[in-house]
C-alpha cells in the first residue's frame, strides 16, 4: 500500500509541476521533406550552442502550418516547416488565432524526381505530357476528351516501354503534391492539348486548370500519404511502378532506384540550381515572431539554419541534397531584422 501511495504522490507532483516548468526547447513541426534538413540543423545546433536540441516532428506541410496557426503560447509550436509557401487561407487562420507576425524563411530548393526500380522497365526520360497522359483523369484521344483508359506507357508514346501504368504519387496533404500538380500535370495538360479542349468545351480557364490537376481514379495512380519510404516500398514490390520522390531521398537510395529525366534534363543539384530542371520547388520554414525572446534559442536556431556554413553550397544541407538558395544573404538579413511577412516587401 505504501508503495502505491508514493507512486500516486509522484504522479501528482509531476502533474503539479506542469504549470511551473517553462518550455526551454524550440519545437518544430511540418513538412516531411524539410524534416531531414531540420533534424540536421537541430543536431548541429544542439552541439554548438548551450540550448537544448530542438524537437522536430513531421506530418506534412499542411498539418504543420495548421498546428503553427493554433495560436501563440508555450503549447503551440514555434516553427513550421513547409515544402510550399503559406497560403492566404492559412495566413488568415493564423491571424484569427492571434498569430499575426510570421517570419517567412526560404532555405533553398528541392527537386522532385520520377524514379523506378533499378532493374525495372527502361523509364529513363519523361515529358510532362507523358505523365499527364498516364495519370490525368481526362485525356485527349483522337481530338476528343475521354476518360483516361491507357493501360501501358507505349500506348501514347512509342519511345516509352511497354509496361503497365502504375504510379505512386504524394497524397494531398503533402506540399510535394502541389508542385507535382502545377509543374507536371498542368504543364502536361497544356502540352497534350487537353487543356485547350477543355476550354473550348466551355470551361473557364481556372476550372480547366483544376480539371487538369485531377488524377485518374481507377487504381493506376496511388496516393501515398506516408513518407517516401512508403513510396519506395511500393516501388520495390511493383517492377512497373513509377514513384515521385524528393531529390535528396533519391540520392540516398541510388542503389535501388533509377531516375528519369524530365524534358530531357537530369535532376541534379546543379540543374536545379540553374533552373534547368523543371520540377523544383522552394522549401520554407515559418517562425512565430511572438515567440522570439520567449522561447530560448528560437532566433539563434533560425539564424543558424540559414547561416552560410549550414545552408550554403558547401554546408551539410547541400551535402544531403538541398539546392542552396543563391539569395541566402537576404534571408539571413530578414531573420536578423525579424522582418515579418508583409513588411519590407
Amino acid at each position: 500500500m505504501t508503495l502505491k501511495m508514493t507512486a500516486s504522490a509522484l504522479a501528482m507532483a509531476a502533474v503539479a509541476a506542469t504549470s511551473a516548468a517553462a518550455r526551454d526547447n524550440v519545437q518544430v513541426a511540418g513538412s516531411s521533406t524539410v524534416l531531414p534538413y531540420a533534424s540536421i540543423v537541430a543536431e548541429a545546433f544542439g552541439e554548438n550552442f548551450d540550448f537544448p536540441t530542438p524537437v522536430v516532428e513531421s506530418g506534412g506541410s499542411s498539418a504543420g502550418l495548421k498546428r503553427f496557426c493554433e495560436g501563440v503560447g508555450e503549447n503551440t509550436i514555434d516553427v513550421a516547416n513547409a515544402s510550399r509557401a503559406i497560403r492566404e487561407k492559412e495566413i488568415k487562420a493564423c491571424a484569427d488565432n492571434g498569430v499575426t507576425d510570421i517570419i517567412e524563411t526560404r532555405i533553398g530548393y528541392d527537386g522532385i524526381v520520377f524514379a523506378s526500380q533499378i532493374d525495372g522497365p527502361a523509364f529513363t526520360a519523361f515529358e510532362p505530357a507523358d505523365i499527364y497522359n498516364a495519370l490525368g483523369a481526362k485525356v485527349l484521344k483522337d481530338g476528343e476528351l475521354v476518360d483516361n483508359d491507357y493501360t501501358t506507357w507505349n500506348a501514347f508514346n512509342a519511345d516509352l516501354p511497354d509496361a503497365e501504368i502504375m504510379a505512386f504519387i504524394p497524397g494531398t496533404k503533402h506540399g510535394t503534391r502541389e508542385v507535382f500538380e502545377e509543374k507536371v500535370l498542368v504543364a502536361g495538360c497544356e502540352a497534350t492539348g487537353a487543356m485547350e479542349a477543355m476550354i473550348e468545351g466551355g470551361m473557364s480557364e481556372d476550372d480547366a486548370e483544376d480539371a487538369c490537376m485531377s488524377v485518374r481514379a481507377d487504381g493506376r495512380s496511388v496516393d501515398i500519404d506516408g513518407d517516401y519510404t512508403e513510396t519506395l516500398a511500393s516501388i520495390d514490390s511493383n517492377p512497373n511502378g513509377i514513384g515521385v520522390f524528393g531529390l535528396a531521398f533519391y540520392e540516398n537510395n541510388t542503389d535501388s532506384l533509377k531516375v528519369a529525366t524530365m524534358s530531357g534534363v537530369e535532376p541534379t543539384t546543379e540543374t536545379i540550381a540553374a533552373g534547368d530542371y523543371p520540377v523544383s520547388r522552394p522549401l520554407f520554414f515559418y517562425v512565430k515572431k511572438a515567440h522570439i525572446g520567449v522561447i530560448p534559442g528560437l532566433k539563434e536556431y533560425a539564424s543558424f539554419f540559414v547561416a552560410d556554413e549550414i545552408a550554403g553550397p558547401d554546408g551539410p544541407l547541400a551535402e544531403y541534397g538541398l539546392v542552396s538558395d543563391p539569395e541566402l544573404a537576404d534571408t539571413q538579413a530578414k531573420i536578423e531584422n525579424e522582418t515579418t511577412m508583409g513588411e519590407g516587401m
Binding site: 526547447n25 533534424s39 537541430a42 537544448p52 524537437v55 513531421s58
Partner: peptide, 8 residues
C-alpha cells in the same frame, strides 16, 4: 512523440 525528438 514521433520525429527527431529523443536527443536530450
Amino acid at each position: 512523440m514521433v520525429g527527431y525528438i529523443a536527443t536530450n
